[in-house]
Design a protein around this nucleic acid. Structure first.
Lengths: 153, 153
DNA sequence: GAATTAAGTCAATATGACTGACATAAATTT
DNA sequence: AAATTTATGTCAGTCATATTGACTTAATTC
């Protein structure tokens, strides 16, 4: 049971992450840049520490990628209002545009995959994906992504 | 629409691939070894060329990983019966055991994610995942994974 | 004032991938 | 029989993304 799902998930995820590659390559960016850009764009003013937590990488790994994104004018760092140690992260207009472009490619693939499926399928897929995530992490992720789920489950 | 699905898929896939990490680390293997071991175990006697096609990597990338798996006694290479150029790949008993262990971990997560979902959800998820894959690749993948789909769609 | 926190940096390393070129042996085509 | 193609492997160099551990600076909190 569910044997083939392992492999389907492997190939599905591969093509899903492959979509943005071409657009990213135009700026000499890779998937690490994509992830950073995406989460900064979706969470304007996020702290470096929180971003590290989301991505599950170390400061050093983020460092290089973030620096390149800042150097290329995609991400801006602003001092925290209350805590001046913080370097809050925001996308610039061009950074936002790129983030939107990349998101659109992935949304299109998701839409094509969901269209023609029975009513309620999107909700089933959403629940399935949520439950694939470690239970301890779910509520944090739901807050982060502001899913249609709200805080249910 | 479907915005949060991008992020849910990211986190779901991360935890999904994270399951086998501990078991792999005991042998000093990484995810590249896992993928090779998995597809060889599921397709005994596969040719190197076909495996390269499945994984979408180059000969050089496969080379190191495959050599380590052979050196550790996880994978065996046998000369082709009809074509003596071929080095057909098989898992050894211990390689098979490891592959099964890793698969079981991922199956458990999939089962936990699907349980309690409405009847027919597994089929919906299966169809969703298949349609996330590039259309040109689907029939090859279906043949490869011998999904309950058979050759439909 | 001391301890903690946020962020950044240095140095070294590992993993998994790449390109391009080349080598060998076996099979197939001409 | 010779030429070509195929299957596999290898050499050398490179790149992207990640790691660990140690250390610094500045700001906040206790």
């Amino acid at each position: 049971m569910a044997y083939d799902l392992i492999e389907l998930l492997f190939f599905a995820y591969r093509d899903f992450t492959g979509d943005p590659d071409e657009a990213l390559a135009r700026f000499d960016f890779g998937r690490a840049h994509h992830r950073v850009l995406h989460f900064v764009d979706r969470n304007p003013g996020i702290m470096v520490t929180d971003l590290l937590g989301i991505l599950g990488i170390t400061k050093q790994s983020l460092g290089r990628v973030l620096k390149q994104l800042v150097d290329e004018g995609m991400i801006e760092q602003r001092e925290g209002h209350h805590d001046r140690r913080q370097r809050l992260l925001y996308t610039t207009p061009i950074g936002h545009d790129l983030a939107v472009d990349l998101t659109r490619l992935q949304q299109r693939r998701l839409e094509r995959a969901l269209i023609d499926l029975p009513d309620g399928s999107e909700e089933i897929v959403r629940t399935f994906l949520l439950r694939m995530i470690d239970p301890e992490a779910r509520s944090d992720i739901l807050k982060l992504i502001r899913s249609p789920f709200g805080l249910k489950d």
